[in-house]
Amino acid sequence: MSWLAVLVLVLVVVQIIAALFSVWQKDLLLAALGTSAISVVLSVLFYLLQAPDVALTEAAIGVALSTIIFVIAIKKTDRYEE
């Protein structure tokens, strides 16, 4: 197993954990940050998959814009899930 495969394994595991975290987290702000983490990992994975264009897009949109509109929406509504 090369170090690259190990890296990918770690990234995928981190991604799945982040996804589970954002689904189960009662605090929506943290859930939104979880999606942000997914996007960060996704961006790296895209880079590893030789797709720099997509990685760039995901970095700009998934990490920053998507998260911030979630945060804004949470701010306009409730922060905690009942």
Partner: peptide, 12 residues
């Protein structure tokens, strides 16, 4: 790598 979509997102 990059282009209109990415650049626009970065500006935003």
């Amino acid at each position: 790598p990059g282009g209109g979509f990415q650049g626009g997102a970065i500006i935003a």
